[in-house]
Design a protein around this nucleic acid. Structure first.
Lengths: 176, 176
DNA sequence: GCAATCTGTTTGTTTGTACAAACATACGGG
DNA sequence: CCCGTATGTTTGTACAAACAAACAGATTGC
């Protein structure tokens, strides 16, 4: 924890965060970063608003339903679910509460481990998701995918996956 | 509310959102969309936390300071600033209030148009931004840019820019 | 000079995080 | 078997930040 062996010269002080040797962004990198920044700032709100209007679902709620629908038995342990949608435990508890209130999800004790509980997608929840899906698909195409032309999509996927794997998952794991 | 258009037969009504003809995502597109979704959900939080820890600045606050620093006279009208960082008017008002409280920004009436006010980056604010920059640069590289290898960056920039231009700016404009 | 419009601010609500405490259950050593 | 600790989840509080809608002041056109 105390050792930080990234420095070329031996340093004496705490050296808070000053990255003396970091290369500035090239113009091309700078443009890419600015564009990506705008996307990560604006796109969540855009998708959220769209989904809310069309399906009365938050983006996070949609992702939870989707994650459950693809899980074996349409169910996941709360902690697995939190990892899969990248939100905090307490945030997930409240989100699942909301979904439980409208019967999209049910919680049940885990057999064999009475501490945990599993969120189970109900038939109503699945129907809700299926009702939302076509419209959401259309939005995804119109808002995002239609503009991702001239790109090597598999390479993009790999790159974005690296970003998440090296950061979000690490942070989630650290939080345990 | 009364219409429940889940039927396979041809419909005559308004057909609210049902995208009958939308092609489902190909596996490659699906993977890309899922990766992008995870990025737009997690990356804002990651960058926010990082910036907050290193510079006591929110991502949006940082972007506002940056936007101002690059504007002529280090100043922008509130509405221009809101457009430039893609946040709502009311959100911007509060954000600028925060920045004003620590003297990073000053607001002044616009001469000739008493309705508007301009946010001006103070010397202290510029210093704050410059102090945050090297560390933030290091984070941007480490968290994101280092992983964007094997990509045509200009093509990526162009694609992301299209997404924003066709959606966020349109939404902002619609909001006036 | 008055109404319509533009610009910004205020207010109320929503959603999320962080952190700590409360629980219940699981597990492991004596 | 029993006790102490670890784990998984929920709950409560405090807080931050965002949006939408209502609002207020200034300006402009008629």
């Amino acid at each position: 924890m105390t050792a930080d062996a990234a420095d070329p010269q031996p340093l004496s002080g705490p050296q808070p965060v000053t990255p003396v040797g970091t290369q500035p962004l090239t113009p091309v990198e700078d443009e890419a970063w600015r564009a990506l920044t705008r996307v990560i700032v604006a796109l969540p709100r855009i998708m959220d608003a769209d989904l809310l209007e069309r399906a009365k679902l938050t983006l996070n709620e949609y992702l939870v339903l989707m994650s459950l629908s693809e899980a074996p038995g349409r169910a996941l342990r709360m902690s697995e679910l939190a990892d899969s949608v990248l939100i905090s435990f307490s945030g997930l508890t409240r989100l699942v509460e909301r979904l439980e209130r409208d019967s999209s999800v049910r919680r049940e004790k885990i057999e064999g481990d009475g501490r945990g509980s599993r969120a189970v997608l109900t038939d109503a929840g699945l129907a809700r998701l299926q009702a939302a899906w076509p419209s959401h698909l259309e939005s995804v195409r119109r808002i995002v995918m239609d503009h991702l032309t001239g790109l090597d999509l598999p390479a993009l996927t790999a790159a974005l996956t690296r970003v998440i794997d090296e950061n979000a998952l690490a942070a989630a794991r650290r939080r345990r």
